[in-house]
Design a protein around this nucleic acid. Structure first.
Lengths: 337, 337
DNA sequence: CTGAAAGCGCTTACAG
DNA sequence: CTGAAAGCGCTTACAG
């Protein structure tokens, strides 16, 4: 790799000038600039980011924390790829790269420091956190640090933190309204794992919309799942066994809804005639499982893009931290309601 | 951030000694070592990776190239998350981080250099390439560079290159054998996009196993898809319209198989009684779509892990580049055959 | 086993 | 508009 010295030498200028050509081009004369640019292109000069980071304390890398909990190896995000694509392309348009942060080796596996250490060692400028619902203390520790953070689906606050989330309460409301409009009066729900924020919000919104229509959610008609398919299947079986049985079920996540669909099917119930089912997320399968899953769609691309924008505003360093972004959800009607 | 100087000062030793404690601990006296270690822990010293990279030319970062083609924004990997998890955790066990390489801003969007430049600027030690079937010249350019590369599902060769792939031909054979054992004699197939390597291999294996049993694949019974659901749907309609109609179909990817399933359903055909369908990949949906998709499973975790191991061997720099890894596939029988 | 010194490739006041 | 010089935080021969 040719260094800045090499191009300076060949151009007969100082390294400072070459540096300026790349960092504050307006300050160098048109003629010198062109000379340097041409020479750089000719010999394939590329600034060394490590050296630059060392000198400026800015790495142009944002850390990605995700899949954090070594005790939950099976955890999967329902639409990670969509988020990643949007996030990465929005960041790269501004010259930022994404570094997947691995827990620091020298911190213990349970150390609260294991991400923070990685953040500092690698000089990442900011971090994006994709929640996995585990309340990992090492993730929470990032909030206390002075590094800009944006969390997804996690109420992450602090002087340099903000978060992005779908309007989970609103989505829950949409689900309820849809079912009510279809004439359902006895409605049940399968919630997410209960202390988690999205699960709570979706339930709250759902319940409040029912209440507005004079419908109450019986305790027996609320069963918690864990977002995954099997839990939806089990929960649905439980709901089906009740008498009288609900005529509609809101599953707070599509995977669980698919499990519920299967349980209904096995019980010989027709969907939506005997029982209607509505999910949440709009994952790919939703359109594929017969009779097609009606669901509340999250704006997956919007989430990734908003995360990128939030982190970039914070890196600008101008304003205070950006307000949390709450993205609207969308009712997608398919065959299951 | 406290620097190496600070801990040296506090311990009354030279920075060289502190550096040795972290990089060649066996060479410093037990007593000094402990002193330094304690002090480092006390003041929270963390080596700065940028400075280290600058000095050693090794960054402990491996680049990830994926989703490379800006002209194909909709491209999705069927099991990216599984690969990522396995790759990341295997790498991080060795202190390596994954940097998602964004195309270099200053190369044109079509420049063959756009990944290579990012590789050099960021001093990544190696790169993992996840193929998207696009033959992006900027990806191919990585093969000519001197940086260690391992590609997934892409026959990537060169002095510092190797690749990982499932045994696509073997999987194709397994699919054929399964159908033959079930008594099928008139068999059709929906292939992947045709010049791509996995598509070709799967078809070759499939066809050769048929031939071994004295069955030939009629030209009309071979329809190409593009891996995605819709193409499977369309291809299946076409196959169904043939007379005589095949009694079994091998779709070379699960997404396409799901589309085929739908087409069969819409045509009023019972699966597997009227027509059997077998897929390839074993993605999550395979188990979810009724009647359950029989498929040839890829070892998703194995692929990620193998990629990590290959890159680490190359970084060791001892041997020549590692041999390509061909991972066995697995027949998973469900309801569709 | 340890230290002094040079060097990795850049940026940025400070002068001019 | 440009250059000389110091500094970013580390590693690594070279001596001892």
């Amino acid at each position: 790799m040719s260094s800045i010295r090499e191009v300076a030498r060949r151009c007969g200028v100082s390294v400072a000038t070459v540096s300026r050509v790349f960092n504050m081009p307006e300050v160098v004369s048109q003629q010198t600039r062109q000379l340097v640019l041409d020479m750089a292109a000719e010999i394939g000069y590329l600034p060394n980011e490590s050296a630059r980071t060392l000198a400026t304390k800015k790495s142009n890398m944002v850390g990605l924390v995700w899949d954090t909990d070594h005790r939950r190896p099976g955890w999967r995000h329902p639409f990670l790829q969509d988020i990643l694509v949007a996030l990465k392309s929005a960041l790269s348009a501004h010259g930022l790269h994404l570094l997947m942060l691995a827990p620091d080796q020298n911190a213990g596996p349970d150390s609260r420091q294991r991400f923070l250490r990685a953040v500092h060692r690698h000089n990442v400028d900011g971090v994006v956190i994709i929640d996995n619902g585990s309340r990992d203390p090492a993730v929470l520790a990032l909030a206390d640090a002075e590094v800009p953070c944006v969390a997804l689906d996690l109420r992450f606050t602090g002087p340099t933190c903000t978060y992005i989330t779908s309007d989970n309460a609103g989505g829950g409301r949409q689900a309820a309204q849809h079912l009510i409009e279809l004439g359902h009066r006895h409605i049940a729900t399968i919630t997410g794992p209960m202390p988690t924020w999205p699960a709570v919000q979706r339930l709250d919104g759902f319940r409040s919309a029912l209440v507005s229509s004079g419908i109450t959610l019986a305790d027996d008609d609320v069963v918690a799942g864990d977002w995954y398919l099997d839990s939806g299947y089990t929960a649905m079986k439980q709901l089906i066994s009740r008498a009288p049985r609900a005529t509609a079920v809101f599953a707070a996540g599509d995977e669980m809804a698919v499990g519920a669909l299967r349980a209904a099917h096995e019980a010989g119930l027709r969907v939506p005639d005997d029982i209607a089912i509505i999910g949440f997320d709009d994952i790919e399968v939703a359109a594929l499982v017969p009779p097609g899953l009606t669901t509340i769609a999250q704006d997956k691309t919007g989430i990734g893009t908003a995360a990128a924008e939030a982190i970039m505003t914070m890196l600008q360093g101008t304003a205070a931290q950006p307000e949390p972004t709450i993205l609207p959800t969308d009712l997608i009607v398919r065959g299951s309601t």
